[in-house]
Computed example of a mutant assay.
Amino acid sequence: MTTRPEKHSLTLQGHRTSVSLEPEFWTAFIKAAKEDGKAINELAVEIDESRGDVGLASAIRVWILKRLQSDA
């Protein structure tokens, strides 16, 4: 069962933005940032810079999925 997305604020290069992700994705995103020794804002900037014309929330979800697949 998937839960409703939660909106959280992030700061990307000095600009505030909000991103809506399901709690499971927030948990995985925060865990990945900690494992990499980064703040979630820092990791979000990296994803943002490589996302092209895809929305940030979608880019984060795909990034998490690819990371999990590579860990498997």
Rank of each mutant, 00 (worst) to 15 (best):
M1G: 14
L12A: 05
A57P: 02
G14H: 03
S18G: 09
K38F: 12
R61F: 00
E49Q: 15
P23A: 01
I47A: 04
S58Y: 02
E24T: 02
T2Y: 15
I64N: 04
A39Q: 14
T17C: 13
E22I: 03
T17G: 01
L21A: 08
T27D: 09
L68N: 14
I40L: 06
D53H: 13
R51D: 07
S9H: 10
K7M: 10
L43Y: 04
G52N: 07
E46L: 11
I40H: 05
I64A: 04
A57R: 03
L56S: 01
S18E: 13
R61Y: 06
A33V: 06
Q69A: 15
R16L: 10
S18Q: 07
I64R: 04
E46M: 07
L21R: 00
G55N: 09
H8N: 05
V45A: 02
S9W: 14
L10D: 02
L56N: 06
Q13T: 08
A32P: 07
R61I: 02
I30D: 13
K66F: 13
K7T: 15
G14I: 07
A28H: 00
E42A: 14
D53R: 14
R61A: 00
T17L: 10
A44E: 03
K7W: 12
K7S: 15
S58L: 04
V45N: 07
I30K: 13
I40R: 07
T27Y: 05
K38E: 08
I47W: 01
E6C: 09
A72G: 10
S50W: 10
R16A: 11
E35L: 11
L56F: 04
I60E: 01
A59L: 05
P5W: 08
R16H: 11
D48T: 06
N41E: 09
S20V: 03
R16Y: 12
N41R: 04
A59I: 07
D36C: 13
G14Y: 01
L68F: 13
E46I: 04
G55C: 07
Q13D: 12
P23F: 05
T27C: 01
G14P: 05
R61P: 02
H15R: 15
E49W: 05
D48I: 01
K66R: 14
